[in-house]
C-alpha cells in the first residue's frame, strides 16, 4: 500500500470544505477575536516604542493579527480530531484502507485551506482600516507564509490531540501553550522590546518567523531576512506535521 493516497487526501479536504461552508457561525466566530484585537489595539495605540523602519502601528499590527488568527484556528483544527473521536467519526476514518499519513495530510490540507481563507479575510478587513500591503508579490509571499503558519500549528494541535483522551486539557493548552506562543512571537510589539532572556524563547517560537515573514512580505519590514523566515517556517511546518502524523499513528482510536 502506498503511503500517500491522493483520493483519500482529497476526500478529507473536501469534507472540511463542505463543513466549513455549512458552518456560518464558525466563520464569524473564528474571525471575532482577531478582529477585536485588530480594531482595539489598532485604535488604542497609534504608536509604540521600537517600531522598525518608519511604519505606523497598524501596519506593524496587521501581520501579527493574521498570525494570531492562523495560530488559534490551526491549533483548534488540529485538536478537532478529538471532536471526531467524541462523535465517533474518527473510527470510520481509521478502519478505511488508507495510510495514517494520508489521513493526516488530508485533514491538514482541509484545515490549512480554511485557515488561509480566514487570513485573507482578516487582510481584506484590515484594508478598510487603512492597511496598505506592499504590492502583489508581497501578497503572494504572504499566502505562502500563511500556509506555513497554518500547517505548523495544525501539526501542533494534532500532537496534543493524539496524546489526549478528550477535550478536558483544552484550557490548559489554551493558557499555557497558545497564549505564550502568541505573545512571544512579535505579533503585537517588537520582540526587541523584551528582556534578553525572553528574546531567546522567541527565537525557538515558530510563530516568530511566520509573523516576521508576513511582515516582511506585506509591509517590507522584518527583523530577519525573509529567506531565513521562509526556511525556518518550512522546517517547523514539516517537522510539526510529521510529528503529528507520528503521534496520530501511535494513538489508539477507541
Amino acid at each position: 500500500m502506498k503511503s500517500i493516497e491522493w483520493v483519500a487526501i482529497y476526500v478529507l479536504w473536501l469534507r472540511e470544505m463542505k463543513r466549513f461552508v455549512r458552518a456560518k457561525s464558525r466563520v464569524v466566530g473564528m474571525l471575532g477575536m482577531p478582529l477585536f484585537f485588530l480594531v482595539f489595539m489598532g485604535l488604542g495605540f497609534s504608536n509604540i516604542p521600537g517600531l522598525p523602519g518608519d511604519i505606523d502601528y497598524i501596519h506593524f499590527l496587521v501581520p501579527g493579527i493574521i498570525g494570531m488568527g492562523l495560530l488559534f484556528t490551526s491549533v483548534f483544527a488540529g485538536l478537532s480530531v478529538l471532536w471526531d473521536k467524541e462523535f465517533g467519526f474518527l473510527k470510520e476514518i481509521m478502519v478505511a484502507p488508507v495510510s495514517r499519513l494520508s489521513i493526516v495530510l488530508g485533514r491538514t490540507a482541509g484545515n490549512a485551506t480554511t485557515a488561509l481563507i480566514q487570513g485573507i479575510l482578516i487582510l481584506a478587513i484590515s484594508a478598510i482600516m487603512g492597511f496598505r500591503p506592499n504590492g502583489i508579490v508581497g501578497l503572494g509571499l504572504a499566502v505562502v507564509f500563511m500556509l506555513l503558519i497554518a500547517t505548523t500549528f495544525i501539526g501542533l494541535g494534532l500532537i496534543f490531540a493524539s496524546n489526549m483522551e478528550d477535550m478536558h486539557g483544552f484550557s490548559l493548552i489554551m493558557n499555557f501553550v497558545i497564549f505564550p506562543i502568541f505573545f512571544l512571537s512579535g505579533a503585537l510589539f517588537p520582540i526587541e522590546n523584551l528582556p534578553e532572556w525572553i528574546i531567546k524563547i522567541c527565537y525557538v517560537n515558530p510563530l516568530t518567523y511566520g509573523v516576521d515573514g508576513l511582515r516582511g512580505a506585506l509591509v517590507g519590514v522584518s527583523s530577519f531576512p525573509i529567506a531565513v523566515d521562509i526556511l525556518l517556517s518550512t522546517v517547523f511546518s514539516i517537522v510539526m506535521v510529521l510529528l503529528g502524523a507520528y503521534f496520530f499513528k501511535k494513538s489508539e482510536s477507541v
Binding site: K18, G88, F89
Partner: peptide, 8 residues
C-alpha cells in the same frame, strides 16, 4: 456508537 458526519 454512530460514526457518521452529521454535517454532511
Amino acid at each position: 456508537e454512530l460514526a457518521l458526519d452529521e454535517k454532511l
